[in-house]
Write a protein that binds this DNA or RNA. Structure first.
Length: 562
RNA sequence: GGGCUCGUGGCCUAGAUUGGACAAGGCACUGGCCUUCUAAGCCAGGGAUCGCGGGUUCAAAUCCCGCCGAGCCCGCCA
């Protein structure tokens, strides 16, 4: 791989070595990234100054004179810091060479030969997706793309909850109520049935009984009931899939919860935990420790049926057989559940690799989203509004496009904005949904990225890069800044993947686009003399490759012109 | 009540894992830049007691303790 990380590591090693030899000290050397104008890496000398009672100048000189300065252009001692200026231009030459030789493959990481089962979204198939949990598919899908990029094999799962009360309510409503609904999208069409049936249970004992009967049959593993239910729930799931596919989210596998009942997994879990279970009024539970407190977790109702937690254990055991590691993207409300689940899984199966990514709910300014209270923004509505906004903006700027082209373009820009505006914020941070922010197409936004990509494409359409590049022709500050920014790609991807922080990619994409836009305004390309033109075309070419890659990672389209 | 998470200019967000040099972007605001590769852009400017109070340290937005505020959780629900 290319980039500056290698330089950092060898500098750290070398400094550590010098300190050991010259001062007989064992120190943990971590270089910092200094503010603008202080080089690429810096080493604070405070500790040494204090330890050895010598001036920073004196210490700095000793270190510099005996350390290995490979790939370093110059070093300065400034205050209590040793500032290293990397020879970014030589490194950039390697980078451009790699791009020339292998194109986009230059951005690939080595395969890890490790398979991750990534579960995300898993919304109950009882209604359309709303923005409250809308972060889940976007964060989840991006993590999947990131991990693939970083070299993992990834299998994405959607766990379809068809065993609970909510599913039974919908099924009952759809089968028994005669309603006149004008909605063509199936997930929205079924909403009134669910709502009406929910109301019914409040005071209609007969309905309540019927719903409990459905639940009971399902949990007992009655194949007919389960399959009938799946047909109705499947209608909603189809609608959800449509929504997701519009924002480029898809799954390798939909795993139905009731399969765990049908294939005996749930039964096996209960057997495995038989010795740990305790009885209380006919129901069975196990005890787990949560934050120093013992908690009861029920696995079996007094009527003998299993609970969500039981089935979740079974599901995770299934997943653990499918890959080397599991990653789940979960709402913050699942935190205690996930912690307890992990404990139980460890008890059953010693080494188990699970990592959870939690996100906090998206709320509206007036409070938490709630379908019942009619306080909800559906993901479909957000997408629709965003695409509409994009259409308006395009019509404002372009009068050369036919209606069909406008349509295609607004879809790409609008859906990209939906993904980006959610992605750019750390998942655990609370998020209040405001239309004016969701529809912001300036500054830190996806159109900003797509715009920079289109600008690069536009230049390359007029003239393509012939393959020449020389660091000696780089003079402008904007060129250097762009090159340096591009060199950060590997460490950003690594950090984002290892720590499951997709927002890092979003932030980096903004910085990169920004560096390119400055380059674009300051450095003409096409009208320069041949040599310089080729040099700048190389940068534009490399930038376009990188930005296209980053947008793909985020599931955002990158049209050649916007 | 207990636990988890969050609190950074008027608004939104980085920086916190690994404590370091004037706290960095964006929105909004003020002023400039389209006869030159796409102005969804670029340049310049104003605007921050980093929730509050202690502590550790040569050095704290970052680590520790307490408090305040917001969200989430504490079911034989999912």
């Amino acid at each position: 791989m290319f980039g500056l990380e290698g330089v950092r590591k060898s500098l750290e090693e070398s400094i550590k070595e010098v300190i050991r030899e010259k001062f007989s000290l064992e120190m943990n050397v971590v270089l910092e990234r200094p503010p603008e104008g202080f080089g690429d890496f810096s080493y604070p000398l405070y500790d040494l100054v204090k330890n050895l009672r010598k001036s920073p100048e004196e210490l700095g000189k000793i270190i510099i004179s005996s350390m290995d300065l490979k790939n370093i252009e110059r070093v300065e001692i400034k205050g209590n810091y040793l500032n290293f200026y990397a020879d970014s231009l030589s490194i950039s030459e390697d980078f451009i060479n790699k791009i020339r030789e292998s194109g986009r493959e230059a951005l690939n990481f080595e395969r890890k030969n490790r398979k991750v089962i990534l579960e995300h979204t898993s919304a109950n198939p009882t209604g359309p997706l709303h923005v409250g949990r809308g972060r889940n598919p976007i964060i989840g899908d991006t993590i999947g793309r990131l991990l693939k990029k970083y070299g993992y094999d990834v299998e994405t799962h959607y766990y379809v909850n068809d065993a609970g009360r909510q599913s039974a309510i919908l099924v009952y409503g759809y089968k028994n109520l005669k309603l006149d609904v004008n909605e063509k999208k199936s997930d929205h069409r079924l909403v009134p049935y669910y709502q009406k049936a929910s109301e019914l249970i409040e005071n209609d004992d007969q309905a309540k009984l019927e719903i409990e009967k459905i639940m009971n049959s399902v949990e007992r593993g009655d194949v007919n009931t389960i399959m009938e239910n799946r047909e109705i729930l499947g209608l909603v799931l189809e609608g959800i899939k449509q929504t997701l596919s519009r924002i480029n989210v898809s799954f390798d596998r939909f795993y139905w919860e009731t399969d765990l009942i049908l294939n005996g997994s749930v039964k096996r879990v209960l057997e495995m935990l038989r010795d740990d279970m305790k009885e209380e009024e006919g129901a069975y539970y196990i005890e787990v420790e949560l934050k120093g407190k013992r908690e009861k977790v029920f696995l079996k109702r007094k009527d003998g049926t299993s609970l969500y937690f039981t089935r979740d254990i079974a599901y995770h055991l299934v997943k653990s057989e499918l890959g080397d590691e599991m990653i789940n993207v979960l709402g913050e409300d699942h935190k205690p559940h996930a912690e307890m689940l992990l404990q139980v899984l460890k008890k059953i199966k010693g080494n188990i690799n699970i990592r959870n990514v939690f996100y906090s709910f998206v709320a509206l300014p007036e409070g938490r989203m709630s379908t019942r209270r009619g306080r909800v923004v559906y993901l479909d509505d957000l997408i629709e509004e965003s695409v509409e906004k994009a259409r308006e903006e395009i019509i404002k700027r372009r009068n050369d496009l036919d209606p069909e082209a406008i349509e295609t373009l607004s879809e790409k820009i609008g859906t990209g904005a939906v993904r980006f505006n959610i992605l750019k914020i750390q998942s655990e941070k609370k998020l209040v949904f405001k239309w004016e922010e969701a529809l912001n197409f300036e500054g830190d936004s996806s159109p900003f990225l797509q715009y920079s990509y289109a600008r690069a494409s536009s230049i390359l359409r007029k003239e393509s890069w012939k393959g020449q590049y020389s660091k000696d022709l780089v003079r402008d500050q904007a060129e250097v800044a762009l090159l340096k920014m591009m060199l950060q790609y590997p460490e950003v991807i690594e950090d984002a993947s290892r720590n499951l922080r997709p927002y890092r990619v979003a932030k980096y994409a903004i910085d990169l686009a920004s560096a390119f836009n400055i380059f674009y305004t300051q450095c003409p390309v096409l009208k320069e003399r041949e040599e310089l033109k080729q040099n700048r075309l190389a940068m534009v070419h490399a930038f376009r490759l990188l930005m296209g890659d980053l947008l793909d990672l985020m599931g955002i389209e990158h049209p050649e012109e916007i």
